[in-house]
Amino acid sequence: MAEITISKTVRVPLLGGTDAGYHMPYPYDPSKPTLILVNAFVTSVELYARQYKNKQLTDAMNLLAIELLGHGNTRTVSPSWTYWHTAEMNLQVMEALGIKKAFVLGTSQGGWITARMALLAPEKIEGIIPLGTSMDYESERTVKLGCWDCIRDVTPTIDAFTTTENTPDFEAPTAFCDFLVDIGLGKDVDPAVREHWRKIIKSNYRGNDGRLRARMAAINLRDRDGLHARLFDITCPVLWLHGTNDVVYSIANAQEEIKLFKNSKSAELVIVKDGTHFLSADKPEAVDNALISFVGKWANKHI
Rank of each mutant, 00 (worst) to 15 (best):
N245K: 15
V12M: 03
L63P: 12
K199G: 01
I271K: 14
A60Q: 15
I219T: 14
P237L: 06
N208S: 11
T133Q: 03
H85S: 08
L14E: 11
L69Q: 05
E126K: 03
T76A: 08
K53V: 05
T164H: 09
Q56Y: 03
D149V: 10
R116C: 07
L69W: 04
L131P: 02
R215H: 14
K283H: 06
N204R: 13
P237H: 02
I151G: 05
R152H: 12
P30M: 02
L131M: 06
I66W: 07
D188N: 14
R230G: 00
H277V: 03
E46R: 11
A172W: 14
D225M: 13
M135G: 12
M216K: 15
Y52K: 06
N90P: 00
T58V: 10
V287S: 02
T34Y: 09
G16M: 07
K32T: 13
T174W: 06
N263S: 15
A217T: 13
G146H: 09
A121N: 05
E123L: 02
P13E: 08
D29Q: 15
D188M: 08
D246E: 08
P27V: 06
Y48I: 01
F232M: 01
E95F: 03
Y48S: 01
D225V: 11
V193N: 08
T157L: 09
H85A: 05
T18V: 11
L260Y: 05
N166K: 13
T162C: 05
P156S: 00
D178H: 01
L15K: 09
E257H: 10
K202Y: 00
K101W: 00
Y52H: 05
P79Y: 00
L97N: 12
T74L: 08
H228K: 06
T74K: 10
L14T: 10
A96N: 11
L279N: 08
N90D: 12
A286E: 15
W197G: 09
D19Q: 13
L69Y: 07
A60R: 14
Y205D: 07
N300T: 00
A40L: 02
W112D: 01
N166Y: 10
Y137T: 11
V248K: 12
E138T: 06
D223L: 04
V270K: 15
A102V: 15
D190S: 09
K187Y: 12
E257F: 09
T276L: 09
N300D: 14
P191D: 07
K273T: 14
P33H: 11
T107R: 04
T174G: 08
E138Q: 12
P30A: 11
L64W: 05
T76H: 04
S78H: 04
S108A: 09
H71T: 12
T244D: 12
V12F: 00
E268P: 02
K297V: 00
G21C: 01
T174L: 15
M94Y: 12
T164C: 00
C150D: 07
T82M: 09
L97E: 12
R152T: 14
N62W: 10
A49W: 03
Y137E: 14
V77S: 14
P79W: 00
W84E: 13
